[in-house]
Each structure stands twice: as C-alpha cells, then as structure tokens.
Design a protein around this nucleic acid. Structure first.
Lengths: 196, 196
DNA sequence: ATCTTTACATACTCTATCGTATATAACGCC
DNA sequence: GGCGTTATATACGATAGAGTATGTAAAGAT
C-alpha cells in the first residue's frame, strides 16, 4: 500500500467534494484543500493544471460515480419495482446532510458545465423513476405525477438540513413510500400492483 | 419620491439577495454588488458596518419577509385547508428558479446564524403544514408523513433547476396536490375530507 | 444663505489566494 | 548504488476584494 503522505488525484477530488458540499464551489480553494489534506499547493499543481481543472474533474467524478452509481447499485440489488424505489429512498435517507448535490444544484445556476451535468443526471434519474412507476402499474399522466413527487422528495431530502434521528427518518420514509406507491384518489383508473 | 441615485439599505439587501440566490454567500461581494447597482463601495459602507452586517441583515430580511410572508399571504387568502395547501404549492411552482432558499440551505451548513434562522423557518412551515393536514382529517402518524412529503416536495421544487414550462408544472402540481390530499393505501384509518 | 447632517465617491492599504518558479525528497529500475 | 521519473515542499509575483480615510455633493433646519 502506498504511504499516506503520497496523494493521488483521487484524494484531492475526495477532499474537494467535501469542501464543495459544505460551502459551494467558491469554498474549493487550493490552499484550503491542501491545509485540510495536510499537503501543500505544490503537490496539487503536480496533479492538476489549475483550479478549473480540479472543478471539472470533480464534476465528472460526481456525475459518473456518486450520482449514477446510486442507480447502478440499486439496480444491481434487484427486487420488485417498489423494492427498488425503497432502496433509493433509503439510500438518500441514510446519506445524512453531507451530500454535495445541493451545492452542485446551486453551482449549476451559473456554470454551464455543472448545468449540463446536472441536467443529464436529472434526466437519467427521472427516466429511471418513470420506469419504476410504470412497472408498478401506473399509467398515463399518473406516471409523471408520481415520478415528479418522488423525485422532488428525494431532492428535498438532500437539501433539508435539520433532520430527525435516523430511525424516525426511516419510519417516515417508509410511510412516504407507501403513499407514493398507493392508490390515487380516483382508484378506478389506477390499480396498483404494489410489492408484486 | 427619492431620486434613483440615492440608495437605501433596502436596495442593497435586494441586490444582495439576488447575488446570494445565484452564487451563495461567497458571491455577495461589496464591489460586485456596487457594480450591479451602479453605486460604489463608499455608499455601501455608509449604510452598513461591514460585509457580515449585510449578510445578517439579508438573513433577517429573508426570514421575516420572504419566508414567513408566504405563509401569511396564503393564510390571508383564506379558503379550505386543501385550498391553502394548493395556494402554497402554486406559489412555489410559479416562483421560478430564482429563489434564494437553496443558497441559504447551503449557507446554513457552515454558518450558525443561517442555521438558526432556517431551523425557525422549517419549524414554522412544518407546523403550518401539520395544521393543514390535520384540518383535512389526517390523524396520527399520517399527519407527519404527509407533512414531510409535502414539505420535501416544496423544498425540492426550489432546488430543482431545470424545470418544464409553467403550464406543465402547474398541471403536475395539481395532480401532486390530489395525491397528497387523497386517501392512503389503507383507507380504513384515514377518511379524508378533501375540499371540505 | 450658511451650517449641519446625511449620502455618495475616490484613493489607498492590507490580506488572501491563485498560479509559477524552483528546490528537494522518495521511488523504480538496472 | 547511481539515475531518471514522479511526487512534494517553499518562495515569490500578481490580482482581487475587504475595509479605511478622506473628500465632495445634496437635503433640511434656522
């Protein structure tokens, strides 16, 4: 194993992700990051061209591993569509308030690269959720409705700072899951095959 | 009316709110703000002690007017509990992606003052939503469940950047409203008096 | 009308941080 | 065990932005 004093780009990106999650892209400073990692600027500029290069690598890393990886893991775990939705909700509920996603959403308001990456992620996740609800038997506009509600709730979970204890969060999330997968107020046009 | 070249603190706060919404607290710079307002630093330092003073005023303004004002306006408009919930959802859906709230949520991760203000706002809005759902006939843990789901969706709406056209957003929001106020999967313990 | 107060502008200092230049240390290999 | 390559450290400009000092302009009072 490599000695801990030798940093690869991965360590810089991991540290930058934490800074990003806490204070947005402005908080990702080379010197602040070096201080936190116990390294120096010189090391950084050996691995990256400049600060924009770090931010670009950060974004690419988040898009492929952090964001898409969640769907991949849920998909690999298998189970019914309702199970998969629950796995998604549970992952987010457990994640705590350390997600960099709110910072990236804010970043996307001004940075075109971040906006593009985020749009791809949103599209992929919404598509995935639509498939799940369609597999559960939802039809027509109801698919979009439930997909959007579920996704808004997942995003909101990331954004919400103060949160109750994990056990309470999970219990509430479980009931939210039931509500999202349950019948609608006009049950005649939506018969759900939950837990099929 | 005062001449347009004379700025009061209110104008500085309004401009700062826009910068905050776009780029977080780090983006609220005195010089950037002065440039945008067509004023100079000298004017700023006449109205505020320093940058922290501006940020504090900004936070106080958001807490009282922007955040609580929404509930007050909805409450003043009246109507049934379901009507009021819809008024809330419609307000947020119309607001576009210019809300400073995501930036404040991110800010709250590091700044104690922002965290305290946000906690008060969250508490007040959750309490208000609980009252609404209770008035609609929800009972027991279902009140908390629906409240949390509704609030997560409202927060998510703020955070989500790319959004469909207003008409589509409103149509989907209307169906989400129906879903939130509709019966649950076990209707026996929750008979809803929607649109009462 | 002048005088006081309020409001705005300009010029400067100081500090932080990016980026660079350059020096030193560890590692891989033959 | 020397030697190139890779990785880390330090010292230095350059720039941007916070805060200050000080000057000027507009209102209102008497």
């Amino acid at each position: 194993m490599a000695r801990p004093t030798r940093h690869g780009p991965a360590l810089w990106i991991a540290g930058a992700l934490r800074l990003l999650a806490e204070g947005g892209p402005e908080a990702v400073g080379i010197e602040a990051l070096a201080r936190r990692l116990g390294a120096t600027k010189g090391s950084f500029y050996h691995h990256f061209d400049d600060r924009p290069a770090l931010l670009a690598a950060l974004l690419a890393h988040w898009e492929t591993r952090a964001a898409m990886g969640v769907i991949d893991r849920v998909e690999a775990a298998g189970g019914s569509a309702a199970d998969r939705l629950w796995a998604l909700m549970e992952t987010v509920a457990r994640e705590g308030a350390a997600s960099p996603e709110p910072a990236i959403r804010l970043w996307a308001r001004t940075d075109p690269g971040a906006r593009a990456a985020l749009a791809r992620i949103d599209r992929a996740r919404l598509d995935y959720l639509e498939d799940l609800f369609a597999a559960m038997g939802a039809r027509g506009p109801d698919v979009v409705t439930r997909t959007r509600l579920a996704y808004l709730a997942l995003i909101g979970e990331h954004a919400l700072g103060e949160r109750p204890a994990l056990a309470d969060r999970l219990a509430t999330a479980r009931r939210i899951h039931a509500l999202l997968t349950g019948p609608r107020d006009n049950p005649s046009d939506f018969l759900l095959t939950v837990y099929a």
